[in-house]
Design a protein around this nucleic acid. Sequence first.
RNA 1: GCGCCUGUAGCUCAGCGGGAUAGAGCAACGGACUUCUAAUCCGUAGGCCGGGGGUUCGAAUCCCUCCAGGCGCGCCA
Length: 588
Amino acid sequence: MPLAQWKEAVLQEVARACRTAFGRDPEGLEVGYPPEVELGDFAVGCFPLARQFRMSPAEIARRIVEAAAPRPPVAAIGASGPYLNVTLLPDHLFGVSIAALREAGGRYGDSAAGAGRRVMVEYLSPNTNKPLHLGHLRNAALGIALVRLLEATGHHVIPAILINDRGVHICKSMLAWQRFAAGATPESEGMKGDHFVGQWYVRYAVEAEKDPSLEAAVQEMLQRWEAGDPETLALWKQMNGWVYAGFEETYRRFGMRFEVFYYESDTYRLGKDVIADGLNRGVFARDGRGNVVFPLPEKPFGREKDGSLKRVTVLRADGTSLYITQDIGTAIRKVTEHALDSSVYVVGSEQEHHFQCLFAILEALGFPWAQACRHLSYGMVYLPEGKMKSREGKVVDADDLIAGMVELAAEEIRRRDPEGRLAEEEIRRRAETIGVGAIKFYLLRVRPAQSIHFDPAESISFDGFTGPYCQYAYARIFGILEKAAERGVSEAGADFGRLGNAEEKLLLRHLLEFPEEVAAAASEFSPARLATHVFHTARAFNQFYNRHAVLQAESPALAAARLALIHATALVLRRGLELLGLEVLENM
RNA sequence: GCGCCUGUAGCUCAGCGGGAUAGAGCAACGGACUUCUAAUCCGUAGGCCGGGGGUUCGAAUCCCUCCAGGCGCGCCA
């Protein structure tokens, strides 16, 4: 981590000057950056020293500068009010940093904070009665990025999905198909399986409006399903099979990957034994109606109006289970089957209370890993008209959105290739990477806690703070590297002492900060933080690119140094985008 | 009623373990392609950082309070 090394060098040099000036080591100093790169590479505010030396920070800064006798890698220390601005020798700063970065290669930015820890990340909980929508894509984008971020920080990550494949809602599409489809299949209709089934779910709602008796028929079907009626199970399996085939396509296209699939039809019976055991041990209690309840600790949950502890019902009096019953069972099953240290749930913020309860219960049951479990909560995705409601048909379908974005990207590619040199296959390949990347970046660029107001016009933009902007910067660098090879320009003989203009310094700073940003994004569960940094890096490159020539630089030694700098930039952009779940293109 | 989240430029957002003149992107206006890809860059304009109080040498950032919006608050999932 070269950045830590530079900061340490800065602190040591400041400390040395401080000893000369005051005869004592400074305490509590931190290294930051000056507001303008021209002022220096690093900055140290002298505020913490005011108490120590009983002097104004500005006066302390002045005296330290007076006493400074900079040694490599420090080139100069200047004072600006209460701040010390430290400039490093460019051949050290650029040379060492770039060498370290190139050495790390595709693993630059990785760390070992989570080494040895096994964590399951569960994301996306689709229902098998309708296709995925925009909300699922936000969930997926966050899940994909979180998996990669945790891996980059040394965790062993097991990506998992929980599929809601049973219940009344599933029976509705089954019933509608049975009554009205006349044997139609996805194949016969030429439809993607999940869309095909979703169509019958919608049809049910339409028909139930006209014929209230369908409600009872659905309940009956659910009972047959629970009783294990072979015919019902066969239909259920067939229709779910169609849906899974459709989902598979969307998973693949959006880059979702799951190692473990949990099905609610398997897990919905779990948890009862644990609850019985907890009841015996006094973790749970029975309320007046015979329900098994868990009294929520006052600390985070507060109390009821009457002063009693709030509680959640974990098992109904009649012994039937609830959502949380099976979640308790599934959580334990996950840990025991995969030897986990912790479990992460990527689920919408409307379930925050549910997960707080779940974790509190697991902790009360005495599971040591409960404290390490986390809920990555994210806000809603609103459409211009309001919240997405699948039953009202006001949704943005995931497949439609992806296809639309890919098509827009293809149009843009064709517009930039008026002579039609690109093969159709190549256009499609690029459009896929750009279109999907645009969606992912759009969904990741704001903090998870923020709700997203989906703006169709803005979401299809490829300019500014977008995925394609970052991908474009990478492609530009790749173009230069390609041309360098053609022209026989290499990085050999690079003189890093010639680097150091404002654009180069700013770019290098972003490269140096990358590892910290990756670590922070992982520990804060905030891919948005990394998205911002990748964008800033791409922008810093574009600014450099527009002002300075690489291959046509004033001297071969400078050209070689710049080549090394942009090569390092490409590595950071690629890795950063990769951690966000985006792919890069060598040509756009 | 209670809990959590959110409130920063016309719009969408970043910054919020306090520190130099509050930053982007979009939209608007004006510039830059004979030169490594203009999906780019530069410039102009646009802010009582929701209101009020407090802590501090210093507050968008910490504390209190109020206002507005969202989500949730045992026996739905």
